[in-house]
């Protein structure tokens, strides 16, 4: 009767299992430092330009949209506050994570997927290395380090984007008022929320990418399937998790 639930539950169990093994391995020797550096470079440095671009425009769009509503209430001075809060709490983390999911969950899944179908993962196990330690742990660590950093950058660039619209372009407020407003409005709660989310998203993106990659079967076609699935599943979970976390923080 509950047959349709079996496969997702098994997948989730595999996910938790992989999360546990990959995290524990971070504290066990041998430590693959070179792999970590390489992954931080592909995920972090490689995603920087696009993150900056998307972050900037989300700030710009937010300030533009808000300008109408705020001027109706004569509250144009609040534009800094609104941009900062929305960006730090929600838009920054979610947009960055979706971007990285599209760019790197797929990249990880297709890389590990090709390794799976060409039996490189079997070869690793046969020749003395644990693929979880060698492949998954460095990707998870790299993601946990770089995604929060990218999010902070996106948040900051977004607030700058909002400033460009609010001050030089539409003259809604003065520069010092915008920055003061933006800075003061951010509470401890917002910052905590804005940093916990990217950390959770990092787990989702890295592990979903690795899990779907390592489960690939059925040749090159299978790699394509695994890649698509990884992006879809990671994106859905990003939305579910952000809703849950926001719910918790709203109640605090």
């Amino acid at each position: 009767m509950l047959d349709w639930l079996k496969s997702p539950i098994l997948t989730f169990q595999e996910f938790v299992n992989l999360a546990g093994r990959a995290s524990l391995n971070a504290f066990r020797r041998p430590f693959y430092g070179q792999d970590l550096a390489l992954q931080m470079d592909t995920i972090g440095v490689g995603s920087l330009p696009i993150t900056v671009l998307i972050g900037f425009f989300s700030g710009v769009i937010m300030a533009l949209q808000m300008s109408r509503a705020l001027s109706q209430y004569g509250a144009t001075g609040q534009v800094g506050q609104i941009t900062a809060i929305t960006l730090v709490r929600e838009m920054g983390p979610v947009l960055t994570a979706l971007l990285i999911a599209g760019r790197n969950a797929s990249g990880i899944a297709s890389e590990l997927g090709s390794m799976k179908v060409s039996e490189q993962i079997d070869a690793m196990r046969a020749l003395g290395t644990d693929p979880v330690k060698k492949l998954v742990t460095p990707r998870l660590l790299a993601m946990c380090i770089t995604l929060p950093l990218l999010t902070i950058i996106a948040d900051f660039v977004g607030i700058v984007g909002g400033y460009m619209v609010a001050v030089p372009l539409l003259r809604l407020t003065t520069g010092s008022q915008y920055w003061n407003n933006a800075w003061r409005s951010l509470e401890y709660n917002d910052i905590a929320q804005g940093l916990i989310k990217p950390l959770l998203f990092a787990f989702i993106i890295a592990l979903v990418g690795c899990l779907y990659g390592m489960r690939t079967s059925g040749g090159t076609q299978g790699v394509g399937r695994a890649t698509t699935q990884a992006v879809v599943v990671a994106s859905v979970w990003i939305f579910i998790v952000t809703a849950l976390v926001t719910r918790i923080f709203v109640n605090l």
Binding site: V117, S118, E119, D122, A123, A126, L127, G128
Partner: peptide
């Protein structure tokens, strides 16, 4: 146990990010 078994995989299983030397040295 595996360190006493040599294996050639059907799909090759050579690590394509490593050189031939690094591949052969891997075990």
């Amino acid at each position: 146990v595996r360190s006493h078994i040599g294996v050639l995989f059907q799909e090759g299983g050579l690590f394509d990010s490593l050189t031939i030397e690094e591949n052969v040295a891997y075990p």
